[in-house]
Design a protein around this nucleic acid. Structure first.
Lengths: 309, 309
DNA sequence: CTGTTAGCGCGTTCAC
DNA sequence: GTGAACGCGCTAACAG
């Protein structure tokens, strides 16, 4: 129809006709059906699927803000879904989103293996992983430089004269293992040996970390600083060290750090920027054959309250 | 096609044929195109538009969690968009979402007037407002019982023996004005006169509230308690009252309240539940002619730290 | 510059 | 129990 041309601003329509069409459309509140349009053209219609492992974690949820910003700039919308930490649900969601015709997919994976994410790949829908590198699937990704964050934290502590740094937190997740890797690297470069008795890589439970920290601090040769890789572990550690600061504590991604009644070093990053980068990878169309890209978000180290000696 | 019947579990297909179809679909990774399906049937395909005034405010963003839960239970997905506090953008987004074929719309409005939300109404798309009652549009809504929250807070203070309660915070927003209304109601029922010198309804700026609170507390007849209706105002008030508690302070929707170095009464509500209720209204299809429904979310009052005398 | 024909992928309807 | 024809709303390609 001429109407289609007029509304889409295509050439080949008389100015007067165009006016009449636009006027009529406005009067009737007419809106072209984007789904039918896409069905015919096959072209992307600006829908990005966002699958999060959880919506409850503010750190993960805040990445939505960045994704939304970049999507809005590109005239796209987000279809949001939560896998609730279940990889099977994750697979179903991706299949559903692909069936709904999303142009791209951003996923914060629930598990370590991402083979099931191929469901979308086969349909030719671009995939970007957020917060961890791909495993079992080829895809672009945006990750936080956790290892360097931990490395810098340790170096900072070494420069302050610390020689025995304890490590607490699960290393089962990608982030946890990277933090542990950075911890090791820093020790290597500083030529300080890692004492396994100062390392507790148990699962993320406050009580476990609390006991482990107590054990380290009351041992014959206690650490003067603690690097705490997980949120629950940090809770436990803070209970163990109580209000008095005889030991330097560094944590990751702590919210309201400046209201914690204990001086704290915090390694953090810009989660909104991470979201923007992820969406950016999607819109910055990659050639299907090119090598997968990886964007790295840097961390910063901030000290709250007076640093304990 | 027989394929269509088989995949949709319709009768009239031989068991053996059905098996072959399902097997082939699985092998090819075939997914029916939901858009084409909807185009043909005209039936809802499980897409809910969620338009938020802002994604940055955790209180508003957390309602997404509840909406997602209820949507997931009903096999629906969320299309998320932020109006960034701009009513014009809000109108555009709604039009866009309607064109995308959403079955319903949940909106946390950016402004006080909602006339522009009619864009969607005319297309017959159900609308639910969240966090404020409709103004200039007929729609269901879910609101927090702000007035009763303020009322209860005041009554609690009266029961503790307080007789002069100051009020600080903007009353321009719906929530603010409701809180002020509750403050007035409580005074009426307790037969305590409201002293206008104990009321500062200025806009939400920490410094303004800080100065106002200082003024009240250093006046000839100072209040012994303060009801603070806005987040920025609370920041200012807390600065004014410093660390010592000679005055009872009650705020609204305070996060990390238990780490604020001052005993605090907090009126709060379940924002996730609010989201669930909003989505619930959408799925619990209303007859087009029926009167608009309003769901009210109750508040709770919690005291952190020791209550000052 | 405008209208016509055809078909995107699906489901309804009605023959077979 | 199965398949053919038709149309949902839209647009690409060609006629007028």
């Amino acid at each position: 129809m001429t109407v289609s041309r007029a509304l889409n601003g295509r050439p080949g329509v008389a100015g007067s006709t165009r006016q009449r069409v636009l006027a009529a459309a406005a009067a009737l509140g007419y809106r072209p059906n984007k789904q039918a349009s896409r069905l015919r053209t096959g072209k992307p219609d600006g829908l990005v699927g966002l699958v999060l492992a959880t919506l409850a974690d503010p750190l993960i949820a805040s990445l939505t803000v960045g994704v939304e910003q970049t999507c809005a700039e590109n005239g796209a919308r987000i279809v949001l879904a939560s896998s609730n930490g279940d990889p099977a649900t994750e697979g179903d969601l991706i299949a559903d989103l692909v069936a709904r015709g999303v142009d791209g997919l951003i996923v914060v994976p629930a598990g370590d293996d991402h083979t099931h994410l191929n469901v979308g790949q086969r349909s030719g829908v671009p995939l970007v992983l957020a917060r961890c590198p791909p495993a079992g699937v080829v895809a672009d990704c945006v990750v936080v430089d956790e290892a360097r964050g931990a490395y810098r934290a340790c170096r900072h502590l070494f420069e302050q004269g610390h020689r025995r740094i304890g490590f607490l937190g699960s290393t089962r997740s990608w982030a946890g293992s990277e933090r542990f890797r950075g911890y090791h690297l820093a020790h290597g470069h500083a030529e300080v040996a890692v004492d396994d008795r100062m390392v507790c890589r148990a699962r993320e439970v406050a009580e476990v970390a609390e006991n482990a920290a107590r054990g380290m601090l009351t041992s014959a040769d206690p650490p003067s600083a603690l690097l705490v890789a997980g949120p629950s572990s940090l809770l436990g550690v803070l209970r163990a060290v109580a209000a008095q600061p005889p030991v330097a504590v560094v944590g990751f991604d702590v919210e309201c750090a400046d209201v914690v009644p204990y001086p704290l070093g915090v390694v953090s990053h810009d989660s909104v920027e991470l979201g923007r980068a992820a969406a950016g990878l999607l819109f910055d169309q990659r050639r299907p054959s090119a090598a997968p890209r990886q964007v790295t978000i840097e961390t910063s180290l901030v000290q709250t309250g007076p640093a304990p000696k």
